[in-house]
Every structure is written in structure tokens, then in C-alpha cells.
Write a protein that binds this DNA or RNA. Structure first.
Lengths: 127, 127, 127, 127
DNA sequence: GTGGTCTAGACCACA
DNA sequence: GTGGTCTAGACCACA
């Protein structure tokens, strides 16, 4: 990654653990199409050097991504991006779930359907 | 609270720390109008006994609520509910913020405005 | 565990990693009713000392058990046994799955239904 | 194997190492009668080219098959299928062993003989 | 070269 | 006291 912008960065002021930030960041890069399906991800060691992070921590992030079915690992070769299609579906289901939780909270807070929909319209346009 | 149903309960299978659950639970009770403005909250000791929890943990939850301006403490007397009006505004702002974050993520995931609004309508009706 | 027989033992000639052996062994002890629901498990540190194993390795086993929903952790307090009922159901489903895989392989190997059932009867009586 | 369907395939999303997949796959092909007794197996080199795999990995799989007595190697000539009869016996013994382990686990899990046999009948019919 | 496991030991949050 | 995270560094299996 010499001469380029770092794709993966760690926010040390973030209260979440490093491995969790890494997991989310890499997932987002895959969702964004930066790492297409079956592409090899940076090796544990190279990423560790690049980010000045202990290899164990990178390893943990990759293990978590594998457990989630987002990447797969070939022993002795490296880590590869799994099906981006199913990742996208998984992501949509997750967004839907979060929207539902939010709607529930808004209802409890006394919001009407009109307010909710107008809120939604506004949010969409503002971002 | 003897003889009634416990208003405040701890879910030990919840991954969040106990003081955080307490903070959220009390905030929600205030939002729901169970503890009106300027009402005195249960004392640290009584709550500690009732919930079989270390008093330090209760104290920490109250300190956090005070930091957020949701309650105020009168030395030697106890903890009291602060302005419920401003709490409600604060809560709405927080919901709005979360909606916006969600909208941003949905846009990135390739969702169209129509899909977004229909998703929102569905979520509202489902809860 | 002074004076008693060690409940948990590690087999260093086993090719599987220590954390995996631990995970399985503890799961079996819970299934056998040695650790009833909501019981506190030995602390990470105490188990590490008792088994002469690094605390990190114990931690990993406990994290895996938590991920599988077999135990739950209360921050600052310890690890506790989750619903044994659902663990038993999970275990039965797993056995059923393995039986099915075996039946498939036996069919491919040219076994008849009579042979299969007689095999099963023999296996049950022999153990 | 040009022009036909590949008999041996590697599943890179499989967690097992490549040499182990190869070993199992070739064993199954022999069991299925695709490679009859005393037939010559594809050479290490040709298989390495065909599967785009390191020759060392193929070599390792063949060595493992030889260790298990499933194939034999003639120096300077190649690898040949050993007695398919004894392989079949070996396979049956292995299945029997696994059935027995399963029966033991089912007994420990509190299953009755009736449940076990009905489970077995169901498994056979479902595959 | 690749990833996976483990030890030793530090430091933090929580109760 | 409890668990959770992280570093440093070793050693192994696999390709």
C-alpha cells in the first residue's frame, strides 16, 4: 500500500476493541466492492506490519469474519472473500432489523406515523 | 417496592455491564412517566438490597444519569428526576441521529428512496 | 478441587487444540448435569492454575461456549451455565444430523436396510 | 482427464487442508469402483497441473493413502490401487466404530432403545 | 510463504 | 475479585 491511502485505519479513541473495528472495517470494504469475491485478503502478517498491530489481533478479526461466513481460509495459502451476494443479503436483513427496533422505540416515544415517515424522508435527503 | 412487580430488573444473560442496564432501564422508566419530574428515586442502598447488587454499581448508574442531566442529586437527601421535557427532546434527537446513520448505510448498500420509504412504512406497521 | 478427581483433563496426545478439548469437555459436563443451569463455572484464572494452562486458552474456550449460547458471562462476576434445556435440544439435533450422515455413507457403501438396523441394534447393546 | 468432467475437485471453502480433501476424495473414488484394483492412479505431476495445486500436496495425499494401505507405489512407475476388498472391509469397520460412538453418546444423552431404533429407521429412509 | 495455537505477562473495565 | 483485550514472541501444520 505504498504511495496510496490506507484502506484500513484504527481509531484509538474508539472504545470498541481493535479486532472489532477491524472486523467491521473489512466487512464494509467487502460490501463496498473493494475486495471482490474470492479475492485474497492481505495476509495476517503484512496487515500487522502495515497497521503496527500485533498479528494475534489481526488473526482474531479474520477468525471472526470467517465465523460470520464473510471470508474463508485456505490453510497455508491465505484468507479469501466468500460470497458477496449472501453478505449483501445478510446486511439488508440486519438493516431491516435495526429499522424495526427504531420504529418500536419511536412509537413508544409517542411519535405518530406521519412524523415517522417525514423523519425518514428528511433523513434520506440529508445524507 | 414490596408486594408489587419489580420495576427494575437485571438481565444477567445480557452482555452489557449491569450499571449500563440500570442506566438505560431507569431512563426508560422516566421517559415512560413512571418517575415524574422532581420525584425522588429509590436510594442507592434500598435498590442495592432489592436487586442484590453491589451498591457501587447502583452508584455508578446514578452518576451516569446525573452526567447525562437526567437526574440531579441533592447531597444528604437523594436523587431526583430532572426535566423530563429536556429528556424527551434529547431522546428525539438521539432517535433522529440513529435514523440518519441508518439512512446513510442503506444508501451505501444501494437502496433507492422508494425502497427506503416502503421499508419504513413496513417497519412502523409491524411493531 | 483438592482431594477429588479432576473433572477436566487435557489430552496432550490429542491432535485437537487445547481450547477445543476444553470446550467439548465442559459442554459434556453441563450435559451430564455436573454444572446445573445458572451455576457459576470455575473462574478463568483458577482453572488456568488448576490445569497449568495459560489463562488466554481458558478464556478462548469460555468465549466459544458463550458464542454457542451454552454459557453466559456477567462482567466482573464470572461465567454461568445458560439454559440446559436448549443445550439438550441442540445436542439431540446434532446427534440426529450425524446419524443421517452415517446412514448416507452406509447406503453408498452398499449396506441394506436390514444390515443397517441390525448394526444399530448391535451398537446399542454393546455400549 | 481432458474433455471430461473433473473427477477430483477441491473445495476451497472447506476448512480441511487440501491434502486431506484429496485423500478422502480418492479413497471414495476407489470405494465407488471408479479406480479398480491394480489400476494406475494419475501421476503426481499430471494431477498437480490439472488441479493447479502444489505437487508436494498431491505427494502428501498419495503418501497418506499408501500409509493406510489403500494404494501401493511402484518406484519409477507410479501409484496403483491396492486390494479394494480389504478397503471395503476397512470402511465397514470404520462405519461400525462411528455408529458405536454415536450410540454411546445417545445413551448418555438419555435416549431409550426405542427412540434410537426409530431414529435410525428415520435416518435411513430420509437419505 | 501462509494461517493457527499457545505461553507469558501487562493493563483495563466491572462488581 | 471477575472477565476482556492486547502485545511479544515461539512453534507448528500446510502449500
Amino acid at each position: 500500500m505504498k504511495g496510496g491511502i490506507a484502506l484500513i485505519t484504527i481509531d484509538y479513541s474508539d472504545r470498541r476493541p481493535i479486532y472489532e473495528q477491524l472486523t467491521e472495517r473489512i466487512r464494509n470494504l467487502i460490501l463496498a466492492g473493494v475486495f471482490p469475491q474470492d479475492t485474497q485478503l492481505p495476509s495476517v502478517r503484512s496487515l500487522a506490519v502495515e497497521l503496527s498491530i500485533n498479528p494475534n489481533t489481526i488473526q482474531r478479526a479474520y477468525a471472526e469474519l470467517e465465523r460470520q461466513g464473510i471470508i474463508y481460509c485456505v490453510k497455508g495459502k491465505g484468507n479469501y472473500v466468500a460470497s458477496t451476494e449472501s453478505l449483501r443479503e445478510q446486511h439488508k436483513a440486519e438493516l431491516r432489523q435495526r429499522v424495526r427496533a427504531l420504529a418500536e422505540e419511536a412509537k413508544k416515544a409517542g411519535m405518530t406515523e406521519e412524523e415517522w415517515l417525514s423523519e425518514m424522508k428528511g433523513a434520506w435527503e440529508s445524507v
